[in-house]
Every structure is written in structure tokens, then in C-alpha cells.
Amino acid sequence: MTTGRGQTVREPRGLILPAWGYYLVFFVAPLVVILAFAFAHREGFFDITFGFYTENLERLWDPVYLKIYTNTLVLALEGTLLCLLVGFPFAYWLGTRVRTHKTLLLLLVIVPFWTSILIRTYAWALILAPSGFLSSFLQDLRLIANPLHLLGTDRAVLVGIVYDYLPLMVFPLYVSIERMDRRLVEASRDLGVGRWGTFRRVTLPLVLPGIMTGCLLVFVPMTGEYVVPSILGGGLRGLFGPVAADQFLEALNYPFGAAMSLVMVVFLLGVIFLYLRVLGRQAEQNLGAAL
């Protein structure tokens, strides 16, 4: 033991082991169990034989299920794009124009993120219901004659997911805009490049990692969304989340539900891998700042 000045106190490295073990047992092992169930064979209701049966994965080629996957991807892409369109100007304003009360304004973006997704989704059910807030408001203004029938449609689900995940998009965008070297933008303007040209050729490339991180953070949960379609989607159950959930909660076909989830996990791992490949070293920094 040295007694020299400036000696640092070192906590044992082993302190990371309990959490690591916890992840292995309660996070990684459940994912492996999904894999095992996806290749299992089911006889009757609960008579499950493990092995290497591909029947569950083959059933996924049924057009019904392919349609569910495409529906889900389209919805998640639409939701991601809308989040970006709403979030970018907003984050740009926060990052470049706001000088006072910035902490408070950022806090106001975080609070909804930590507020129950159930309640925030439910709020839209109240607003979009035929006898709800929006419908009666528009009828009072005589803008529409009949009650709106938005609740229970794909549009309602889209509004719900954009609303629920917007904060996750705003943060990475804000961080990259705030960090951007503004002198480059000024230099471009001074050299006579127009406003739009500067935005497209200087600003956009600089904040691209933030855009990618934001898109990743909202796209991934949107593909697995369960609460929003359950509440705002009404009877239409053509999305991955509710259909996969039904295999466990209603149909009790665990192996098939596992196969559905497995395909989704593999796809999302592909998306995440692509993100890491494209961003490389910047990925860690970006995720760290955004989460």
C-alpha cells in the first residue's frame, strides 16, 4: 500500500458481477428460453416437446402473419418519421435558440417520458372517442356534423405511438444539435452558401448521428408496442405486439408465440447491428448521451 499523495480509492471490480449475473439469469436466459420454445413441438395445450421442430417458424410464412409483420413495420416507420418531423424543429429550437430556462424546458420533455404510458395513451382514448373531447369540440364549432370515428383505427394508434415516444426522439436530436460546432455553419454562410444548402450540407451531416440514434430509440419499441394498439386500436389486432401477446394470454400457444418473438428479436438485432456498424465509435457516445 502506497502512502503517496493522490492515491485513488479503488472499489473492487467484482462489484459489477451481481448485476452482470442478474442480467444473465433474468434477461439473457429468458431470451434463450424464447429460442428453445420457438423450436419446440406442441401437442394438445401444454404438452410441449423441446427439440428442433420448425413447424412454428414455417407457420409464420402464412400470409396472415406476413401481413402482420408488414403492418407493424409500416406503422413503426410512419411513427418514426412523424416523430422526426415533429421532434427535429423542436430540438433545433431547444438547441440553438433557447437561452433562458433551458433546464426547465428540458425537464418538461423528460416528465412525460417517465409518466405512465398507459395513462398517456388513455388520454388519447378520451380525446379521440366518438363522444370525446375532440369530436364534441369540432361539433360545437360546427366544423363537422357527425361524431368522429377515430378511436379503433390505425390513425389513432399512430397518434398514440408518436405521442408516447416523442421524448425519446427529442433527446438524441437535442444533444447532437447542442454539440454541433456552430462555427462550421457560420463559415458556410460566410462563404456564400445559402440557408438551405448550409442546412443540407453542413448542419444535417453534423447532426446525423443524433437523427440515427433518435430513430433507433423510437423505432425499436414501436415495433413491439402492445399497450397503444390494445387501447387505441380497438378490435383491429393486425400488429405484432397484440398478436404475439395473444399467443400467451388467450390462445395459449407458447411455441408459436415464441417463434413470432424470435423473428422480431432477430430483426431488431439486425437493426441495432446496422446502427452500430454505421456509427462505429460514435454509437457509444451517442447512446450514452441519449439514454
Binding site: 442480467y23 433474468f26 434477461f27 436466459a29 429468458p30 431470451l31 428460453v33 424464447i34 420454445f37 433507433l216 430509440l217 425499436v220 419499441p221 415495433t223 413491439g224 408496442e225 402492445y226 405486439g241 404475439a244 401477446a245 400467451f248 407458447y254 408465440g257 415464441a258 418473438s261 422480431m264 428479436v265 431488431l268 441495432i272 447512446l287 439514454l291
Partner: peptide
């Protein structure tokens, strides 16, 4: 990070099976 990013429903399904 994976524990934060993986969709909740996948962890939920895995945990139920587990």
C-alpha cells in the same frame, strides 16, 4: 443498453416462459 432497448414485450414473453 440492451436491457434498456429491447422491446418490453420481448422481455415480458421471455420472462413468462422462463
Amino acid at each position: 443498453y440492451m436491457a434498456l432497448i429491447v422491446p418490453e414485450i420481448v422481455i415480458a414473453i421471455g420472462s413468462l416462459l422462463f
